[in-house]
């Protein structure tokens, strides 16, 4: 046992008021301890990480599908066309005059004229019913003006189509991009489902992380009691658990990224085979660095926040 002089010898030395480097050192130590604690129970830690990864993967995949659909739509939107079916009474000169009128319209970039004869020829060639067309005394097909609008977005195409509706000799106006609009609506649906699923999944992950953390706190109740008895605040007692929650979330985010990448590779090779048949040069997208980073950081944030929500009330309830 030491004498009194040595007992007080350091009493006037620096007692670190919360300076930044002390704060960093203390946090680093807590972070390391929490990490080591997770590694002590690898199976259950991995189970939590895996559940979080699957949860994050579902909305991530939906977002991927939705992003790819909209890039497909962007490509297709440039190809919107409006077909004007003329009545049978319109003559060739009238058709020419009308197409010139249309060309002067600033909303229209080009006009192609398909006469009723051309239409019949195409029809015969396409269907192989050339005999039938020869037997007809009258050509039943109308002449058509195919209008390509300047603005290809669905709204301006629809406006233009409505305006062309009233043109003389035009019997029927049909927008050829209706299936694109349907695809756009479907894509919108996917995007909205993605958003709803995200909300549900985030709530679910809060519960999963919260439950895991609650269990950990219950297992270490004695330790929290001791920490509080020697003057630890609730925040101090909660800190290791917040790190655990963040690790779970980050781990889940990383695993989700890996799984997403594996699915992408598997799906992409099948897709490229299919696309080759259509001679398309479409490439899957939405699985780049940004989305991976968002997945990992988002997972970490969810884990941390879930731990915050779970731990504070429970730690406050332990009051020796």
């Amino acid at each position: 046992m030491k004498s009194q002089s040595s007992q007080r010898s350091h009493s006037n030395q620096r007692r670190a008021s919360p300076s930044l480097s002390t704060w960093v050192q203390i946090h680093r130590k807590t972070a390391l301890q929490s990490w080591q604690r997770l590694l002590k129970t690898p199976a259950s830690s991995f189970a939590t990480v895996f559940v979080i990864a699957v949860g994050l993967l579902l909305p991530a995949l939906l977002y991927g599908v939705s992003a790819n659909l909209s890039s497909v739509l962007d490509n297709l939107n440039g190809t919107a066309q409006i077909s004007l079916f003329m009545d049978n009474g319109s003559t060739a000169s009238e058709l020419r005059r009308l197409s010139e009128d249309l060309l002067s319209d600033h909303a229209i970039s080009s006009v192609a004229l398909i006469s009723s004869e051309q239409a019949l020829e195409e029809f015969s060639a396409a269907t192989g019913l050339s005999d039938l067309s020869q037997q007809l005394s009258d050509n039943p097909l109308p002449a058509t003006l195919v209008v390509t609008p300047v603005n290809a977005d669905p709204e301006s195409v629809a406006t233009l189509a409505a305006r062309l509706e009233g043109t003389s000799h035009v019997e029927l106006v049909r927008v050829d991009s209706q299936w694109i609009q349907r695809l756009a609506a479907a894509s919108q649906l996917v995007a909205v489902s993605g958003q709803i699923l995200t909300i549900v999944v985030v709530l679910g992950l809060f519960f999963i992380v919260g439950n895991t953390i609650r269990l950990a706190i219950e297992n270490r109740r004695d330790e929290i009691t001791v920490v509080k008895l020697v003057g630890g605040t609730d925040a101090f007692a909660a800190r290791p658990f917040l790190y655990s929650g963040m690790y779970y979330g980050l781990g889940g985010g990383m695993l989700a990224t890996v799984l997403q990448f594996a699915i992408f590779i598997g799906f992409n090779s099948a897709l490229q085979d299919l696309l080759q048949l259509y001679e398309s040069n479409f490439h899957l997208q939405g699985f780049g660095f940004t989305s991976s980073a968002a997945l990992v950081l988002g997972g970490g944030a969810i884990g941390w926040l879930g731990a915050v929500l779970a731990s504070f009330r429970q730690i406050a309830a332990i009051s020796p």
Partner: peptide, 22 residues
């Protein structure tokens, strides 16, 4: 632990802990 809670500089804490254990 009490020094950790009070936010002591780790080198300082080490010295104090050793003194107390002594």
């Amino acid at each position: 632990l009490p020094l950790e809670i009070c936010g002591y500089w780790p080198q300082d804490a080490r010295r104090r802990v050793r003194a107390a254990l002594d």
